[in-house]
Nucleic acid binder design. Structure first.
Lengths: 192, 192
DNA sequence: TTACTTACTTACATATAAGTAAGTAATGGT
DNA sequence: ACCATTACTTACTTATATGTAAGTAAGTAA
């Protein structure tokens, strides 16, 4: 939050990109500093340790998610609109080259991750699951969706399927992602 | 293939475990050699480079998959039985601590991976997708499954969903995996 | 018994990541 | 004019991964 000058923002932006492409152990401060045309050690000025950087990045994701949801809800967004936002977000990130969602990108390294990062990741994951559960619940109540499974289990599968779809699509291309999203929707009894 | 003495087998076994927990960049020759009580350089005796090791490991997966499928088919396994084998395999691996499937475990590092490893991973992925497509196709024809989407798209989603489910389950526990598998089945119109 | 192979070890080379300490140049306030 | 702060750079340390070269001990085949 605090001092958000341009360099800091660019650091976060590139770090996010790298994280969502290569995971926690897949990028270094040097990768970022080279992009910005500054030195390795400059990143340490903003984020003394890598865990600080990634934790900050995940926390920012979480705040953005909360703000975006609040805005949709406030403007009277239906369950379908909210879920569509989730899918569109994945597509947008795919088009920006961020093939993997943040939670997915650190799952592999999860056990070996610094506590700080683990914690932020769990919080983000939980926010997403809670939100999707709530969306599915109201969607079923409003007749926007139609399925008979427990809402929480179904929400988990939606998140998992999208996570997997993003990963496979990073190899097989955008069409795969689009197609899978449309199947996920149809499994919710969402007929256009 | 060739010389499969005990050390070699153990190397492959530990490497597979590490790969499926931590991904390509998440483990080193030292991790493996320590487990075996031998020296780092001994692994290089069997696999001069890391890419040789991982490529060999993926190829072995592919061969095992082909053999297992052949055996099920030969013994007259139905589409449901074949698909159940796929799910049971995921559960078995989960119980062995291999939380992530091999293809999923290298997707994050994919672009930066040595050609050899990329190639083997694509082949494995393709074998799985082809197999599941074929199983779904015959399953629909035999009335074992019931869905209306194109078989290939549905097969992709099954694979993606299971991949994602394994990953989330590595954090949230076995119950999540079991629950998601049962939803994936119900989305195929598989009612017990 | 000699020659060769297998399965390693010791010791080293190279690269890179993560992090620190100290210094500098520019800016703004007092 | 002085001081503090910000935003870096230079130069270094430490740790670890990957890989190589050379050697050795035990077994195998002629």
């Amino acid at each position: 939050m605090k001092d958000m000058n341009q360099t800091n923002q660019q650091i976060l932006s590139y770090a996010r990109n790298f994280l969502q492409c290569r995971g926690y152990n897949g990028f270094s401060y040097k990768d970022i500093s080279q992009k910005l045309g500054i030195k390795n050690a400059a990143i340490h000025h903003y984020y003394p340790q890598k865990e600080d950087l990634v934790a900050a990045l995940l926390e920012a994701s979480r705040n953005k998610l909360a703000a975006d949801i609040a805005q949709i809800v406030e403007s009277g967004g239906s369950a379908r609109e909210q879920l569509q936002y989730y899918f569109d977000y994945a597509l947008k990130e795919f088009d920006e080259g961020k093939s993997i969602c943040p939670p997915g990108s650190v799952i592999l390294d999860f056990e070996e991750l610094p506590e700080k990062v683990k914690k932020q990741n769990l919080l983000l994951l939980d926010d997403i699951l809670t939100w999707i559960s709530r969306v599915l619940k109201t969607g079923v109540e409003q007749g926007e969706f139609n399925f008979s499974d427990p809402v929480d289990a179904r929400a988990e599968l939606v998140v998992e399927a999208l996570m997997g779809a993003r990963q496979l699509s990073s190899i097989k291309g955008r069409k795969t992602l689009v197609r899978s999203i449309s199947l996920i929707k149809s499994d919710l009894g969402w007929k256009d």
